[in-house]
């Protein structure tokens, strides 16, 4: 698929089949279109062409099987809700219209908070959590959705060691239960340790496949070797032309 932002293509012709039941990293330099790829997969930004299929079906039909962990900056952390409330929000779709949030649902949310090590912070207002804890709240919110595919936008960005460990543990638990996670990742040091597959992106798909095979110095050089000036230039013209 090709994804455009403000009518300007930021990713060209990415064609990728996610292997199921694996942890997949999306790496690439700033502006490579990593977050955009995930947002496009979720229909949050328009696609120029192409389509996204989840488990063989259009995304619209598979919504409840996909959970999204956005970047922390995407919401207002002053909002008057507690950590538990935010996690419970992941369940609102399942609970359905008019039905109240009963103890059963709150229990599920509490368990998810427990899984990310935040059981003691359930009642805290979200602005009083540290950055790492906020990230874990988002993760817990995705966990309660009990999806099969998890899309995460830089969950490891700017978090403390405890959070990093907690997130990693959760990712591994997910894999062991047969779930798939696509994670935008910025820390090249840990890619090989954390992930089975890697998707290397720089405005286009540079390489993809098992980390051991693909995550090579050669591919890294191609991924991080600067933007393709012409690709950029033509993209801008296209945006102007349209």
């Amino acid at each position: 698929m090709t994804v455009a932002y403000h009518r300007r293509p930021v990713i060209w012709d990415v064609d990728y089949d996610t292997p199921a039941g694996e942890l997949i990293a999306i790496v690439g330099p700033n502006g490579a279109g990593k977050s955009t790829l995930i947002k496009a997969a979720l229909d949050l930004v328009p696609k120029v062409s192409g389509d996204v299929r989840v488990f063989g079906q259009p995304y619209e039909d598979q919504r409840e099987r996909v959970a999204y962990v956005p970047q922390r900056t995407s919401v207002d952390w002053d909002f008057p809700v507690s950590a538990l409330d935010v996690v419970t929000m992941g369940l609102y779709g399942k609970i359905g219209w008019f039905r109240p949030v009963t103890r059963k649902w709150r229990k599920a949310a509490r368990e998810a908070l427990d899984r990310v090590g935040l059981a003691d912070f359930a009642k805290r207002q979200i602005s009083q959590l540290s950055g790492g804890q906020q990230q874990r709240v988002f993760l817990a919110r995705a966990l309660v959705q009990e999806a099969d595919l998890y899309l995460m936008d830089e969950p490891f960005a700017g978090v403390d060691a405890a959070t990093e460990r907690a997130i990693l543990q959760v990712l591994r638990d997910l894999r062991s239960t047969g779930k798939t996670a696509l994670v935008v990742h910025h820390d090249l040091q840990t890619v090989a340790d954390y992930f089975d597959h890697v998707l290397m992106l720089n405005m286009r798909l540079v390489a993809s496949g098992p980390t051991a095979e693909v995550f090579t110095e050669e591919n890294l050089r191609r991924t991080y070797g600067g933007r393709l000036a012409l690709l950029d230039q033509v993209g801008t013209r296209l945006a102007e032309g349209q």
């Binding site: 956005p70 609102y92 008019f98």
Partner: peptide, 21 residues
């Protein structure tokens, strides 16, 4: 009646949409 939906749509409309609200 719409407490849940109003909250979610106010806090994180993107999530609301992805949950079908």
């Amino acid at each position: 009646l719409f407490y849940k939906e109003l909250t979610l749509a106010a806090f994180d409309p993107a999530l609301a949409t992805s949950l079908g609200i």
